[in-house]
Design a protein around this nucleic acid. Structure first.
Lengths: 242, 242
DNA sequence: TGTTGTATACTTGTCATATAAGATTACAAG
DNA sequence: CTTGTAATCTTATATGACAAGTATACAACA
């Protein structure tokens, strides 16, 4: 009855999702060209040796993510990548792999300082109280707890900015950022550095000093970028082994 | 055989999408609480007087957008709004209605100047050639053509910024912005003002002057905001009629 | 009292089969 | 060259069935 997770969760994916992933992988790998037609549902059912229902599940999943367009009587055609919903985590990991950290960080550096800026102008007293405990990073906690706390802190700031679109964007990024955060928190001394920056940001927001909040958030993200670089240098030899 | 579209396209939505929209509307209207269970597929099939297949289509659509979680043996439960993919156009229009223009514009003012900044630094000669014709706004074209051209121009700049995440964000916004653009282009003189700003932005990017590109994009969006205000004043009386 | 097994009823997941309806093609009729 | 039509692809929807996960109540047991 302890909190530690010993066993991995048993994978219980629906058939449609599994088939969908295989199809997505095939599309991303270029086995089907943009504009090309996929095999018919009947054919796919045969090749995967599953029912048409399962195949339809998979196809409707791909269609919902903008990857294909299904039309009655005509079949399924592959959409240009510009139509894909690459912010969907399922799509993102396949399209970008694990090496999108730089792009994500660059995006954060564009959006999050402004998020802090607006938050400092618009945050309510209630939201300040909610934000304060989230700013603490305790050395004794586990990596997962750090990731959780850090994510919540940045999300709460976005919420305080009182712009639903901004909040949605940042939370989309947050989901994709989980792995990156695990890496940076593994760098020695990063927790206390992160903690100090969080306090600086919090103080600026509490004081309703928008400019200071923007600058502090920018500095914080610079520090995150440096941590990411350090982590990479430390793990470069591992990658060379492959 | 002319280009002008006289007739509206016949709506040919799939049953699942229609049922899904009705369910989404019911959820947003608060007829079901967060965490609550939806009626079973069988019950829903009865109430909508459709097959279970159609209902399952609808539910899997909602699940793909993060609105509900479907679990075997347990039914479908409604997720907290933080899990909803509100960037999905289908979800966005229901959640935010038509009055999210301000939030969208604020988001653009955060993201797009940086998009132009990065584009000026990273654009290739080929991309400049693609961008140039898109910058032209011709007074003789239809509103739809303006919207199309304008959207492409801003998207191409985002593409030139060479950051997939940024591009995806801006294209997500673009889809939601279609209606807003139709409004602003209806304001007299707005086409030529937009044209001039586009030329300014293009020139800055062509000259690889990142600072100038950022400033120009910011000015352009300020002008769009003013146009939106003008449009609102002009249409205020119409809204009072309701 | 508290735990364990079990039956039961409810849920979604998957399947096979059939029919409706849109899309495409070829081709005959005018 | 256009129009109508049949054939044949495709997906859309319906029906009925069974498998399998989940929750609950309750008996059996310690």
């Amino acid at each position: 009855m302890n909190d530690v997770t010993i066993f991995n969760s048993i994978k219980t994916d629906k058939l449609g999702a599994q088939i969908g992933r295989q199809l997505m992988r095939a599309i991303v790998d270029g086995r089907f060209q943009v504009g090309e037609r996929l095999p018919s549902e009947h054919e796919l059912a045969s090749t995967f040796n599953r029912s048409r229902i399962a195949v339809r599940d998979a196809l409707s999943g791909l269609a919902a993510r903008g990857i294909i367009t299904v039309r009655q009587g005509q079949g399924s055609t592959i959409n240009p990548i510009s139509m894909w919903n690459t912010l969907d985590p399922e799509v993102f990991v396949v399209v970008y792999g694990d090496k999108a950290f730089d792009q994500l960080l660059e995006m954060r550096q564009i959006v999050e300082p402004e998020s802090a800026f607006l938050a400092a102008q618009r945050i309510t007293d209630e939201q300040v109280e909610k934000l304060r405990p989230l700013s603490v990073l305790n050395e004794d906690d586990t990596v997962d707890q750090h990731v959780e706390r850090d994510t919540s802190f940045h999300l709460e700031i976005a919420r305080a900015a009182q712009n639903g679109v901004l909040l949605t964007m940042i939370s989309s990024i947050s989901i994709l950022l989980r792995e990156s955060r695990s890496c940076t928190f593994a760098v020695p001394g990063e927790i206390s550095r992160g903690h100090k920056w969080h306090q600086t940001i919090l103080a600026a927001i509490e004081a309703r000093d928008a400019q200071a909040a923007r600058i502090a958030m920018h500095g914080h993200l610079d520090q995150v970028g440096q941590a990411l670089d350090k982590w990479r240098i430390e793990h470069e030899d591992n990658r060379m082994a492959f």
